[in-house]
């Protein structure tokens, strides 16, 4: 919040205090939870009065009940584990591939010549457009889902890390060389730590890409996982189950974000932004 904005609020608070003690607008203006709760309340009332039929959208209360039910009977935890495993395996493969390729291209001119052109050619292609081809090649089991996630994740990691390696401060590289670092020592002490911020930016993108591809890929003929739960619910018009699954996807996105933030705090502790905090 800007200082000016804050001052305006404080002034208003003073005016409000003079006019009467009842309404305190500045305080109300700080209540960011208010509008979401209001919307939920409207949604709940509309569902109860039949304005929104449950086959269009289940009531919030029904969603909560279904959530509890799905957790107790084990359907949701089981589905979540399957989906999480897809995401994790896909990420692991993709992040590793992207990192290896970026190191190869970033650390040697020959590597760049060999690795960069093909990747730049494939890059503009939306990964999900490869779904039909992957199904033809890999069937409809777990393999094409994981392969799609891996491929999608490879690009943000590769592009960001490659760029970060190439933009490591040349003055620091020179200083490192002047103090006798070369080869592997220079890479470990200067290049990789210098490229770490860029890598983490790539990782942030990679996590959101992996979630996006997971959502689409696991609706391909899934027999387990959140996608399977959603597909079934769609067939039976169980909007409550669909909303529960959407909630879980949202939580996955949030969790991914928290993970990267935690990594940043740990790995970039030397940055002025974190040192001040």
């Amino acid at each position: 919040m800007s200082l000016a904005y804050h001052d305006r609020l404080t002034d208003k608070a003073k005016v409000g205090a003079k006019a009467g003690p009842k309404l305190s607008w500045p305080k109300l203006a700080d209540q960011r939870w208010l509008s979401p709760v209001l919307l939920l309340a409207i949604w709940e009332v509309a569902s109860l009065t039949g304005v929104i039929p449950s086959r269009i959208l289940a009531a919030p209360s029904a969603v909560v009940q279904t959530l509890a039910h799905l957790v107790v009977n084990g359907d949701l935890p089981n589905a979540l584990i399957v989906s999480l495993a897809r995401m994790a395996v896909g990420l692991a493969i993709g992040v590793t591939t992207g990192t290896v390729l970026a190191l190869a291209a970033g650390l040697s001119k020959l590597g760049e010549t060999l690795v960069d052109p093909p990747l730049q050619i494939i890059r503009p292609l939306p990964t999900l457009a490869l779904t039909p081809l992957f199904i033809v090649w890999l069937g409809i089991g777990e393999t094409p889902k994981i392969a799609l996630i891996s491929l999608g994740v490879t690009f943000p990691i590769y592009l960001n890390l490659f760029n970060a390696i190439r933009s490591v401060d040349p003055r620091l590289m020179e200083a490192g060389r002047s103090f006798g670092l070369s080869g592997w020592d220079l890479i470990v002490n200067v290049v990789l730590p210098g490229a770490m911020p860029g890598f983490l930016v790539g990782l942030r993108y990679a996590l959101s890409v992996s979630l996006l591809i997971l959502v689409v890929a696991e609706q391909i003929n899934a027999s387990a996982g959140l996608g399977y739960l959603i597909n079934n619910a769609r067939d039976f018009m169980q909007t409550d189950v669909i909303v529960v699954c959407l909630l879980v996807y949202a939580l996955l996105g949030l969790g991914a974000d928290l993970l990267v933030r935690a990594l940043e705090r740990r790995l970039l502790v030397w940055r002025p932004a974190f040192l001040k905090a």
Partner: peptide, 23 residues
């Protein structure tokens, strides 16, 4: 031989003593 540059050129990701012991 050793150089001191116009800008300190310390590795920001290494604590001061590790910078001094660089290499």
């Amino acid at each position: 031989r050793a150089v001191v540059f116009q800008d300190p050129r310390l590795m920001p990701w290494k604590r001061v003593w590790r910078n001094v012991a660089l290499g």
